[in-house]
Design a protein around this nucleic acid. Structure first.
Lengths: 312, 312
DNA sequence: TAGAGTGGTGAACAAATGAACATGTAATAT
DNA sequence: ATATTACATGTTCATTTGTTCACCACTCTA
């Protein structure tokens, strides 16, 4: 009656299917014959494998993305590393950059390392893609801020299961006092320390417009946008807004956020920013000016726009 | 007039194509439109990428191969690691195992490591697949024996270019004296030392039959087979034949071989044996009994046969 | 200069693949 | 008990893909 550990068997089967199909170059029908599966089932298994990150594709080249652009970016903005993915007609920039971030991390993370993450669509995609690799290499995952819901959603599909450490608090609370109290709670404080000690910290970069995740997730109401803009806000990282030079803006909101702040990020190395798309140029540029990031992952048009803006 | 570094541009183009196709999920025609290539050309580029190892596919799972079998193998034969690839209808076992060996090494080799290799079809495949990764990570490559021709052939296609160190001597010379003299040559001796110091040593395992590479490459004549068999030879590694317990056989031939010997391999750790297929069971079993290998890469039927033979 | 060989290119086709739809089955609610 | 939903499996069809072939440009040789 007990479940026969469906994960286990599925994984073994998927591994076999993937090997036969990709490494041996058999057709899906042939794979099906060998393993007694219908062709369509093989097709679906492969699909699961690809979208879940179980089957991962690496491009073996220092020319991974756009090498020339990457070095210009590093030089111009004093980044320790940079990855630029090619232009494409595919709409979903978040998805694409999330994938790139996942691949970057898969290359860099060593067994036993840990990774801390912020939130946003891009980050969620990354985490999903990283799932299997992380499990295999025993990577620990830490949240950089409160806001359980967002993290849980992101990791539900990915199966990190163990060693996922989410800060047990909301992202934004109603009074500064409560926020302060929470951040002094041992269970919260210790996790935040751990998060800052992780080898890599992966954060998204948000814009100040209706589409941004902060607003969509109802952490802020659309009515808050205008005051923010007037206050000089050009973007946010982990719900901390900054001006065009990447300097903190004094906002009542900031005192009510539970999570790592920009000062802590600046002091920390290997902070990866992952963002791209036309709306993100301004926020990214501001974040770069403010030296918040050490590593940037973005796409070609955005990189070009950034260089343009910085040089002009 | 000058060549515009075809490698460079090809690589950049290939990287773009691969990204758009695999990561963005565009069709080949769409990729072609974006980059102004015909669909056919995209298809061909992708093919090049896959077969050259430029585009590499990873299966993200500890369940990579056949986990259960692998641990039985490790226990039974005292291996430090083992990889077993699934059964398949594909004929070319050497190719498949070579690929598996390459993948294993890609996972294990860190930047700046070095790798030494023997020869044979399986090894040649591995080296080819490893080409791009090796270049990217700056892996040094060393030959474990003389026999320039075999190595050069294997690495011609792969583009390791730099940091490839081939021992400047034939594999087999005509007199024991010459072999001895060569192995005392500084240029030869130093390379052999370096080869033994490499993080991983990858060797094939040969059988004693007409199909084996030693005979096909004319290092030995078919007439030599019978005497070898009668002398108890069950297989060879790096042209050193051993008996059913993996112990060295006293052969005049051995004194004429230029290269690392079995004693040195036994003393060295992280020696990877890569071999499989029905004809290889006997030689592999002997090598395992003789503790020559620390790591084995083989296929499912062979692993089962080995366990059968060892337990029975 | 002609001719043979080589490498690259695209067209046409056949095979392989993915997506939409249809069916069946088991679990849940009414 | 029945309707309903969710889910898995299989079928069909349009699309996508790899392969084969013929063609062209170029080079090397006679």
């Amino acid at each position: 009656m007990a479940d026969t550990a469906p994960d286990e068997t599925d994984e073994a089967l998927l591994a076999r299917v993937a090997w036969l199909y990709y490494n041996d170059g058999l057709t899906q029908s042939e794979v099906g014959e060998i393993l007694n599966l219908s062709r369509i089932k093989v097709s679906r298994l492969l699909d699961v494998g690809r979208t879940s990150g179980f089957i991962q594709l690496r491009i073996n080249s220092r020319q991974q993305g756009c090498l020339a652009l990457e070095s210009r970016m590093k030089q111009q903005f004093g980044l320790s590393d940079c990855r630029v993915i090619p232009e494409s007609t595919v709409e979903d920039a978040n998805m694409r950059i999330g994938q790139a971030a996942a691949q970057y991390l898969m290359q860099k993370l060593a067994p036993g390392d840990s990774l801390s993450v912020g939130w946003g669509e891009t980050i969620t995609h990354s985490v999903r893609m990283l799932g299997y690799t992380a499990k295999e290499r025993g990577i620990g995952l830490y949240a950089l801020t409160g806001g359980v819901q967002t993290y849980v959603e992101g990791m539900r599909e990915a199966n990190w299961h163990k060693n996922v450490n989410i800060i047990p608090a909301p992202l934004v609370v109603s009074t500064p006092e409560l926020a302060k109290a929470l951040m002094q709670e041992p269970s919260v404080a210790s996790l935040m320390t751990k998060a800052l000690e992780a080898e890599y910290k992966l954060v998204g970069i948000g814009g100040v417009s209706e589409g941004a995740t902060v607003f969509k997730q109802d952490y802020l109401s659309p009515g808050d946008i205008d005051p923010l803009r007037r206050g000089g806000a050009r973007g946010d990282i982990l719900c901390r807004f900054f001006d065009r030079n990447g300097q903190d803006i004094a906002l009542p909101l900031h005192d009510r956020v539970v999570g790592v702040d920009l000062t802590q990020l600046r002091a920390s190395d290997k902070v990866i920013g992952a963002a791209g798309g036309p709306t993100k140029t301004t926020p990214i540029l501001a974040a770069l000016r403010g030296n918040i990031l050490d590593i940037l992952i973005t796409d070609e048009p955005t990189a070009l726009a950034l260089l343009d803006a910085a040089e002009g």
